[in-house]
């Protein structure tokens, strides 16, 4: 089984570190993982993209062509990638930053109310956690605990997870139950 996740937004929002955290988590579970990134010359602002492929077998092609999960935290990112999605793609957007269709997670404002607006990426990780299939929410929570010493990120993760779980109940019966279409997965 191969799961492709693309997280995109502006430089400084932590989209690459979110992708890296997912890869770390996969590795800790003895899964295969490949994490790639692309970003502009500026370290803050500008377009930025992190991708992870998680699989239970050796990964050939390392990039995500048609994501199973697409997270967009910047309008430009949403516009650029919305045509890449397949029917089963779970799209997650922050409605305060992006106008479009998808599961709405107010990551920036949720993180801000917990005490760290920079942790919006972690809220997003929480929201996608119920849909990762090869990775359990508890695994990801543990990886975040290992990576960060503060409690704020765990709180952000839990807040995101709640939103994801609620959405999951609604969506479970429908197409968003990210079904692997083997050929299209790549």
């Amino acid at each position: 089984m191969r799961v492709g996740i693309r997280i995109c937004g502006a430089g400084g929002q932590g989209v690459i570190s979110a992708a890296n955290l997912l890869a770390r988590c996969a590795v800790s579970k003895s899964l295969y993982a490949v994490q790639t990134q692309s970003y502009g010359p500026a370290s803050r602002g500008g377009f930025s993209k992190g991708e992870v492929v998680v699989s239970d077998e050796r990964i050939g092609y390392p990039f995500v062509k048609k994501p199973d999960i697409l997270v967009a935290m910047l309008q430009e990112a949403y516009d650029r990638f919305i045509d890449d999605v397949k029917e089963s793609t779970l799209i997650i957007i922050d409605p305060d930053l992006v106008k479009g269709e998808g599961l709405e997670v107010k990551a920036k404002s949720v993180a801000g109310s917990i005490g760290s607006r920079q942790s919006a990426n972690i809220v997003m990780l929480g929201a996608m956690a119920p849909f990762l299939r090869l990775i359990e929410p508890e695994d990801l929570r543990r990886s975040i605990r290992e990576r960060f010493s503060n409690e704020i990120n765990l709180k952000c993760f839990d807040a995101g997870l709640e939103i994801g779980k609620k959405a999951g109940k609604k969506l479970r019966t429908k197409e968003i139950e990210c079904k692997v279409e083997k050929e299209k997965a790549i």
């Binding site: 890296n20 590795v27 295969y32 993982a33 490949v34 994490q35 790639t36 990134q37 990964i59 390392p62």
Partner: peptide
Amino acid sequence: AIVGHTWEV
């Protein structure tokens, strides 16, 4: 640049 910048196990 691809093998150089890709994170893997």
